[in-house]
Amino acid sequence: MGEVIALPLAGAAALSDVRGQHRALQVTWHERDEVFVVSTWRFGRCVASVRLAPADAAALIGTLAEGLARRS
Rank of each mutant, 00 (worst) to 15 (best):
V47A: 05
R23L: 10
E3P: 00
E34P: 01
F43P: 00
I61R: 14
L52A: 03
T63A: 12
S39E: 11
G67V: 08
L7A: 06
I5M: 09
R42W: 02
T40K: 10
E31M: 09
S16Q: 12
R19G: 02
G44W: 04
A12W: 02
Q26G: 03
C46F: 01
D33A: 15
G44T: 03
D33T: 11
W29P: 06
V18K: 07
C46K: 13
A65M: 04
W29H: 15
V35L: 15
G62E: 06
H30A: 10
S16R: 10
A65H: 06
Q26R: 15
E34D: 03
W41I: 04
R32K: 15
V47I: 11
Q21L: 14
L7C: 02
H22R: 14
W29N: 11
H22K: 13
W41K: 00
L52M: 13
Q21P: 01
A69G: 03
R23Y: 09
D56E: 13
L68R: 10
Q21Y: 06
E66N: 07
D17S: 15
P54E: 09
R19F: 03
E31S: 14
L9G: 01
G11R: 08
V50G: 01
R45P: 00
T28E: 14
F36M: 13
R19H: 08
R71D: 03
A48Y: 05
T40V: 12
V37R: 15
R45T: 00
P54S: 09
F43D: 13
E34A: 14
T40G: 02
W41Y: 10
Q26W: 01
S39Q: 08
D33R: 15
L25A: 10
H30I: 09
E3L: 03
S72G: 07
S49W: 10
V18L: 13
R32I: 06
E34G: 02
A58N: 07
V37F: 05
A55C: 08
G62K: 08
A65C: 05
D33K: 13
A55Y: 07
A53T: 01
S72C: 04
G2V: 02
T63Y: 00
A12K: 04
R32F: 11
I5Y: 02
W41V: 04
A14G: 03
R71I: 01
A53Y: 05
R45W: 01
R19C: 08
H30S: 06
D56S: 12
V4D: 06
V38A: 07
L15Q: 05
F43T: 02
R23T: 01
A53W: 06
R51W: 06
V37E: 11
L64I: 13
M1I: 00
C46H: 00
V37C: 14
P8L: 01
I61L: 15
V18H: 07
P54Y: 07
S49I: 01
W29R: 15
S49K: 11
L15H: 04
L25R: 03
T40M: 08
E3R: 12
V47E: 09
T28R: 14
V35T: 11
I5R: 11
W29V: 04
I61V: 12
R71M: 13
G67E: 13
L52W: 02
W29G: 12
Q21V: 05
A14H: 11
E34W: 11
G11D: 10
P54R: 11
R51Q: 09
A69N: 09
